[in-house]
Design a protein around this nucleic acid. Sequence first.
DNA 1: GCGGTTGTTTCGCGGTCGTGAACCGTCCGG
DNA 2: CCGGACGGTTCACGACCGCGAAACAACCGC
Lengths: 184, 184
Amino acid sequence: MDGVEPDGDRPEITLVRWPEQEATRTALRAEGRPRVLLLGPTTPAPDPGDDREDWVRIPVADADLQARIRWLAHRLGGGGGDRTAERPVLDDDGLFRVGGEWVALPPVEHRLARALLDRLGTVVSRDALAEAGWPEGAPGRNALDVHVLRLRRRLAPLRMTIHTVRSRGYLLASGTSRPADGRA
Amino acid sequence: MDGVEPDGDRPEITLVRWPEQEATRTALRAEGRPRVLLLGPTTPAPDPGDDREDWVRIPVADADLQARIRWLAHRLGGGGGDRTAERPVLDDDGLFRVGGEWVALPPVEHRLARALLDRLGTVVSRDALAEAGWPEGAPGRNALDVHVLRLRRRLAPLRMTIHTVRSRGYLLASGTSRPADGRA
DNA sequence: GCGGTTGTTTCGCGGTCGTGAACCGTCCGG
DNA sequence: CCGGACGGTTCACGACCGCGAAACAACCGC
C-alpha cells in the first residue's frame, strides 16, 4: 500500500550510480546524508563504506530497491542519534494521524490512545489505562483487554504497535522501534 | 542445521535461507548474532530487521555475497563508533533499555538486573544477588543460577553480558567490553 | 434496520518461576 | 596420578496465572 514515498520528513536517501557518480557519493558522505549505490552488472562490489550507505546491483526489481531503502532508513532511525521519527498525533476529533495516514477511533479507544500516546515509548499500567478509558469507573476486568486488542488492530495499518509488558502494562511504540527480542 | 558458518574471522555471520529457516533467524536474532538471509528469486524482501542482519537474493555471485558479509561485519565492528557509549538504563516498569532497544524483564530478573546494573562493571556476590532477588528469603539454591541464566539470555540481544567470576559472583558488562581470555 | 461500538463469557496459549537432575571444568586430597 | 568434591551451566518438567482472542449479546446513532 504505502510504497515507499516517505511523505513525512524521513532522512532523504539518494540514489547514486556508481562508480560513475563517485563525486556525488563522496559529497553525500561528507554531508552525512544516506545513499544507495547502483552498481552495473559487472562492477565489483565497493568496499564497506560508512553506515549511512548501502548498494544494489542493477538491474534490480523495484521492490528490492525499495526494500534496500527501507532497511537503510530503518538502520538510521533505530540506531543513530538523529531520529527524525514521524510523531504520531491524536487530535480531539478522534483521528489518529501518523505519516500522511490516519484512522478514526471510537470514544473508548480514543481515550486509551490518548493515554498511551502521552506516555509514548514508556509503560502505562493497566490501572492507568482503565482510569483513562472509563473515568467514571471501569466495567468488567476483561473490557480493557478487548479494547486494547481492538485498538491494536486499528493501529496496525499505521505501523504503530502496542506492546504488552507482562504484569506491568502496555507500551505504545512506532513499528520501527521494536523490542530487541525476536518477536513480531 | 543448514546454516552455513564461515569459520575464520571474529564476527560469526551465519547464512540463513529465508523464509524456510525463519526459526533459525529468530534464534540468531535472540542471541544477538549477525546473519545474512538468502532469499529465493521470487521471495518478497523481508521487513527491516535489527542492525545485525542483511539479505541477498540468490542466485548471487560469490563476490557479491562476500561483499555483503564484509559490509555487515564492518557495520558491527566499530565502523559507526557512536553506539559504544550507550549506557544501559533500567526503569521502574521492568524495561531494560540500551541503545534504541529494550527488553521487558519479569519481576525476579528485574531485581537481579537492578543489583547488577548498580554495580555495572564490578562483581556482585551470589549472596548479594540472592538478597536482591528475594528480599524475603531465597528459595532453593539453584533458583539463582537459573534466573541468572534466563537473564543472560534475555540481555543477549542487547549485547549485554553477565560474566561469572568463579567463587566470587557475577559481573554485568557491555558486550563490547569482554575479558582478555577467550570466553565470551 | 443496519453497521459500528461496547461489554461479557469462555477457552487456551504462552510466560513466569521453582525444582530436579545431568553435565562439565576446576580444585584438592589421598 | 587419580577420584571426588565443588561450583556453575543448562535442560526438562510441572504449577500457576496473565493475557490474547474468538464468539456472543446488547446498544447506539444515522
